[in-house]
Amino acid sequence: MIDRVGAVAVEALEPESRDAGVAAHYGDPMREQRTLATAVGLVDRSHRGVVAVPGPERAGWLHSITTQHLADLRAGQGTELLVLSPNGHVEHHAQVAEDGTTTWLDTEPGAAGELLTFLEKMRFLTRVEPRDATAELAVLTLVGPRAAEVVPDLKEPEVRAVPGPKFAAGSVPATPTTVYDVRVLPEGGFARRGHLGIDLLVPRGSVDDVVERLGVPLAGLWAYEAMRVAARVPRLGLETDHRTIPAEIDLLAPAVHLDKGCYRGQETVARVHNLGRPPRRLVLLHLDGVATDQPPAPGTAVTREDGRAVGYVGTALRHFELGMVALAVVKRNVPDDAVLRIGESVAAIDLE
């Protein structure tokens, strides 16, 4: 919706951003943040990749090659899943929706092709026909405490608590660890109520009709990212690197079933969970905002006062209430009260 009045495209402000193709804001980023925090706004996330997986064996097949329990996924349900490397490192993170004939996976911008390549390599003789559906469906997201008034009758997400280390086999229910409610929309596509809002996956030709029917104020991606950071929700490629394992960035609860059959990377997941000490952790940092008013770039080192690197910045931004904040991944042994530095700024871990 970068053709709307007041829209400023992400690439006009951040030429190298992975989020090119959608609006960063519509003229007032702080006001748009406040709208998402206190009321409801509609965010264009149509740059996300979408993969469709039709076929009669899709549920069991996806169950066998991903981290989530999908064997009995039913129409009208959604969840999250990960694809891991053989060593248990996170390669893909996808939101899931099942409509009864197709399982839809939406993922990071530009990642649909790589995810599809992986799926095609794992097909063997399975009756599934995965395809890149990014050109078919656009992702829009309603965010805010009044989102459920705009698309009513969607149940709140169900997220199961992560079991403790060395839990008894069979004690975890054989269902997805997270269940999102999904229903069909009048224009086609569907709505899925997730952790950060209600995602609308709609035919690209119907986007303008959906926007007009909803009649909700537009908010840019910058405002959405501020809500995500404040909620400590990681994003693949920003709060992850080539060594990231699920337990480091709090993806066990939403996306990993710890008591299902073997899948690629499962041994690492089980070992780290049973030992209980992943090497790194995801934290929200408060930056002093005195030395500079520019958020640090993704990948900027987080250091101790003596200059030793202890982690890196994923997403940093200015929040309308919290001020300058950053999601970062730091070593597990960094104390909660440690004085940290990011470039010229002093940073402290948010303990709430």
Rank of each mutant, 00 (worst) to 15 (best):
V202W: 04
R204W: 07
E305N: 11
T292I: 11
G237F: 07
F190M: 11
T303S: 09
V313N: 05
W222Q: 10
A226W: 00
H273L: 11
G215P: 05
L284T: 12
E248T: 12
I249D: 04
P217V: 03
L218E: 00
Q294V: 15
G237S: 03
A297E: 09
P296E: 05
R192K: 14
R183Q: 08
I245N: 01
V272W: 00
G215Q: 06
V269S: 05
V184S: 07
P217C: 06
G188Y: 04
A231F: 09
T303A: 13
A253V: 01
G299P: 11
D306P: 03
L238I: 05
A309F: 00
L251F: 08
A230P: 02
R213Q: 10
G289P: 13
L196M: 09
D250M: 15
D293S: 14
R183T: 10
V202G: 07
A297L: 13
G194Y: 07
A253T: 06
A291C: 06
V302N: 02
G237T: 05
G289T: 13
F190C: 03
H319S: 09
V233I: 13
K260H: 08
C262W: 00
H242W: 02
E239M: 04
L196W: 01
H242F: 03
L322A: 15
V202E: 10
P217G: 02
L285R: 09
A223N: 02
A253Q: 10
R318K: 12
V269K: 08
L221K: 12
L322E: 15
D250N: 15
G314C: 10
L196N: 07
Y224W: 09
E225A: 04
D250T: 15
P246S: 08
V283T: 04
L317G: 10
R235F: 07
G276S: 11
V211N: 00
L236I: 13
D241I: 04
P217F: 02
L252H: 02
K260G: 11
P298D: 04
L201P: 10
V310S: 02
A301D: 14
P246G: 04
T300H: 01
V290T: 15
A297Q: 13
R204I: 06
H319R: 12
R235L: 15
L218V: 08
R183N: 03
A255V: 05
V302D: 03
M227Y: 09
R271L: 10
R193V: 01
T244D: 09
E225H: 06
D181F: 04
G197T: 02
A231T: 05
D199V: 10
R304P: 01
G314E: 06
R193N: 08
Y224T: 01
D199Q: 14
F320S: 13
Y224Q: 12
